[in-house]
Amino acid sequence: MTTRDIVFICFAVLAAGCALLAVTTKQVVHAALWLVATLGTIAGCYFVLGAELVGLVQLLIYVGAVIILVIFALMLTRAPIGKHDDLATPGWQRAIAAVVGASLTALIAAVVLPVVTDAAVDIPASTNKGVSAAIFGVWVWPFELLSVLLLSALIGAFIVSQVVRAAGRPTGGEGR
């Protein structure tokens, strides 16, 4: 056990706890806020694992933009304050969901844990330059494809909202 291990376990426990709250809380916006906490602590995990750039990207894109959009969407689709029981699916469905979740955890742990040995690995110092070089060297074609994908997602989102705006019923000044 090194300091890194201890810090990581702290972050990991926090992340798992926040994630659990995010999927079980009965308040709509709180779920999104717990997700923020989860993603933030996961960014901390990345820092501990030496992936500084990934952690920063996580903060900038996930926390700074994606979550903002999620909260936005929640607020646009009615997000009243207070507890609501109509957020969860029926009990039998949740029971199966819990089984599925637990078995997924067990499956992944069973498959991956034997792969990682007990031996400690060295965490290299900052790898930003290396990661950048890899993105624009080895991975440049996937990178370009990704930019095309982003563009098409942008256009797709725009078209979806346009189509609905033309076909749907007006919803009283909530348009953005």
Binding site: V63, G64, A65
Partner: peptide, 8 residues
């Protein structure tokens, strides 16, 4: 990254 969180 830090500034982006502020709006939250």
């Amino acid at each position: 990254a830090a500034l982006g969180v502020g709006i939250l």
